[in-house]
Nucleic acid binder design. Structure first.
Length: 271
DNA sequence: ATGCGGACCTGTTAGC
DNA sequence: TGCTAACAGGTCCGCA
């Protein structure tokens, strides 16, 4: 499932095939995603031109004159471009068919994702209003993380995974970033120096940029908009490597639970 | 205000 | 081989 690099990969993969095209038909096979899919509002867009495809955090925006469709892929979702004769697979919940023959097809087995409509381009959807900055933007910097974390006892790992602090850092990249920064994931966010946040911000940006360059991380079934997997998995140093030797010190990688999510780290290299 | 656990789902894998 | 339990890329919500 998609973290920011996977959503960015999907965005880049689908964009050239549907941007500027006219939406011909919306087919909703299962409207029961995280929130009910607004079928009537989506079908009302038929005949309109898709002006742009954008990413914000882990969300995708399909922007029309009248408003935008907001997509989230949850834990297990993906979007890809298919042609009319492509066989419908299990969990292919929504098709956006365009007059140029391309179809944007949303598949999401666990249905933690969503498809919503915001009927006003000048106002952000409530879900987007509260999001923190983009990690690859200049506004995401050490000063911001430092100030935002003062007084917090929350573990730094769950802190950087909080979308209200910064978007796009999910379970894989949080673990990898903290490893590269040499920070113990259990450490309280408010107990980390500015000097260490400078390093952490640098590695978060580097890890995400590298992952995007590799087309994301395919653990099991992620595919980008072109239907191809990502290749960042081979770069992972701690995620999914419990019991294996640390690439730096050779001690065993540990696995613990934080907020009902698995955390992988090296207790020798990360303090 | 903060922080935690529960909830939402299906599919795959590990273990007995 | 088959059943069961644990676990999986996210994040909103309600409660303490």
């Amino acid at each position: 499932m998609p973290e920011l690099p996977e959503v960015e990969t999907s965005c880049r993969g689908i964009k050239p095939h549907i941007e500027g095209a006219t939406l011909q038909k919306v087919t909703v096979r299962n409207a029961k995603l995280r929130w009910p899919v607004p079928v009537a509002e989506l079908t009302a867009l038929e005949g309109r031109t898709l002006n742009a495809v954008q990413r914000r955090g882990k969300y995708l925006k399909l922007i029309f004159d009248s408003g935008y469709i907001l997509l989230h892929l949850g834990m297990s979702g993906n979007v890809r471009i298919v042609q009319q004769d492509e066989v419908i697979q299990k969990h292919d919940h929504i098709d956006f068919s365009f007059t140029n023959g391309n179809i944007l097809r949303l598949n999401d087995p666990r249905r933690f994702g969503c498809c919503l409509y915001q009927a006003d381009n000048s106002v952000e959807h409530d879900l987007l209003k509260v999001l923190g900055p983009e990690p690859l933007a200049d506004v995401f910097n050490a000063e911001l993380l430092y100030q935002c974390s003062r007084g917090k006892k929350q573990a730094v790992k769950t802190f950087i995974m909080d979308g209200h602090v910064v978007v796009g850092v999910g379970n894989i990249y949080a673990a990898e970033s903290l490893f590269r920064a040499g920070i113990n994931p259990k450490r309280a966010a408010g107990n980390i120096s500015k000097a260490r946040y400078i390093i952490l911000v640098q590695v978060i940006k580097a890890v995400l940029a590298e992952a995007i360059a590799q087309g994301g991380t395919t653990l099991k079934d992620f595919v980008g908009g072109d239907g191809k997997p990502g290749y960042f998995k081979q770069e992972l140093q701690v995620y999914g490597r419990a019991g294996e030797p640390c690439t730096i010190c050779s001690q065993n990688i540990k696995k613990i639970n934080q907020g009902q999510r698995s955390t992988f780290y090296c207790s020798h290299c990360q303090k």
